[in-house]
Amino acid sequence: MQPITLQFYQIVVVGIALFMIYTGTQKFLSRGAGQSLLKLLVRIVVWGGMAAVALFPEFTDVLAKLIGLEGNINAVILVGFLLVFLMIFKILSVVERIEQDITRTVRRESLDQFQGRKK
């Protein structure tokens, strides 16, 4: 049996993935704010998938054949898509935060006016 040799990047990716899955599971089990089974499952699938790809790079060949992706140019396009999705995610996060800020401001003003009317 041949000894398993891991590249540096594989150790780093697997380490980060295990850490993220561990913290997610811990938060879910302690019923932390905003935690749900769906969120935990997504975390396991995403980080588990990254660890699996890092440990078994040949898995991407199977995946590429499965979804019909072949060649470097396709990989570049795929990375481009991922970046666009990441940007959309970030923009939506900002929009959501602004929406919440607006609501807080409107609520504060309404309650202040209400308090003023009471006096």
Binding site: T103, R107, S110, F114
Partner: peptide, 25 residues
């Protein structure tokens, strides 16, 4: 009724929470 008014429409959830905060006050 006691009326509290949002200057702009923020949705049912936002309005409900405003009402709950007022009730607690």
């Amino acid at each position: 009724a006691i009326v509290i008014r949002h200057r702009i429409n923020r949705g049912k959830g936002a309005a409900t929470r405003t009402g709950i905060e007022a009730a607690v006050q």
